[in-house]
Design a binder for these strands. Structure first.
Lengths: 182, 182
DNA sequence: TAAGGCATGTAAGACGTTACATGATTAC
DNA sequence: GTAATCATGTAACGTCTTACATGCCTTA
């Protein structure tokens, strides 16, 4: 069975920080703006158990003061599964481009003309805010950690993508104006 | 209740082509490379019933030769719901950038060095193939239909995004080479 | 007459979401 | 002491996927 992106990211993060807790994986998923995974308890805890059941992780409990904490490690089967997920071959779905704004613009004709300008304004400032957030993350990164090159590249990807969207948005605006649709 | 992207796209497509069948919506979802929605019967048919139950669609059956076919129309509540989904305000999730390749590069360090060059090669050609597909779709579009400006913009978005990814990929390659990671 | 498209659905299972629920530990 | 964080889970619900299932219609 091929791993889902969520499962693969969990295994990848465990490999970087093992032994670690399920709770730690939740914070991994929550903290990076370049990661879009859910950090809900209802998805993470069952996923960890599932990965263990499938032989990709192993765990042990350890006393920590008054409480028991479960630590996970990646097995060699887990590492193999991660490499299979990474590819090559990469699945066709890896070329998918998803832009919620693009999805919406397909139906912009159903919005009254009077609201369209505001629509563009709002999205533009939301994208700009997100862009700043990621630029900050990139600037703040500790370059000494071994994975810094990959993390930087991921941020750089998100930054380039957001800039492209902003560029596209202004082109879209101009074109619709020219066609009297704004 | 706010519509999901899938539901909103269905309502949007129905507004363009009503009255139409569930099967027609499936082909809408399947055919455009700029739409990434599932066209599986198991998601579309229950969704149409759900939207009708919620008052966003209405339907009637009609004899077509030997078979009964169900046609859907959008109600005014449906149109209102679509506009609410479109925004403004746009949800914060609309600034999400999802790139499966970016997700993977975060964990590229777990792939043996020997496979990394091939990894880049494969992804590059997959992206290039997808790019051509969408450029073709854009070139083939009938410009007389009233929604052509929006459809063109959506394709243009996908094209710009794919080009950006290719640009990023070559930057990533160069950087990793310079750092002896390739 | 056979293949492919049109048309509609169901069933089982996997997965994610939200909300609920608990309790220990740490920092202010 | 109290709020935030660390830590672990469960339950109900909704949705999507895959696979199964049927039958009509059109075109080669």
């Amino acid at each position: 069975m091929l791993l889902s992106d969520l499962e693969a990211a969990a295994i990848g993060d465990i490999l970087k920080h093992q032994p670690c807790t399920a709770h730690f994986i939740r914070t991994c998923f929550r903290e990076s703006p370049a990661k879009h995974f859910s950090d809900s308890a209802g998805s993470v805890y069952p996923m960890m158990r599932r990965l263990e059941k499938n032989g990709y992780l192993e765990s042990y409990e350890q006393q920590d003061g008054q409480r028991m904490v479960r630590y996970y490690r990646c097995t060699s089967a887990g590492k193999t599964a991660l490499q299979r997920w990474l590819g090559p071959p990469v699945p066709e779905s890896a070329t998918l481009t998803v832009d919620p704004v693009r999805t919406r613009i397909l139906y912009l004709g159903r919005l009254p003309k009077s609201r369209r300008t505001k629509w563009f304004d709002e999205i533009e400032s939301a994208l700009q805010a997100k862009l700043k957030l990621i630029q900050q993350e990139l600037g703040d990164r500790d370059l000494s950690q071994s994975d810094a090159p990959y993390l930087n590249l991921a941020d750089e990807n998100a930054i380039m993508e957001l800039k492209t969207r902003l560029r596209w948005l202004s082109i879209a605006r101009r074109q619709l104006e020219e066609q009297g649709l704004l």
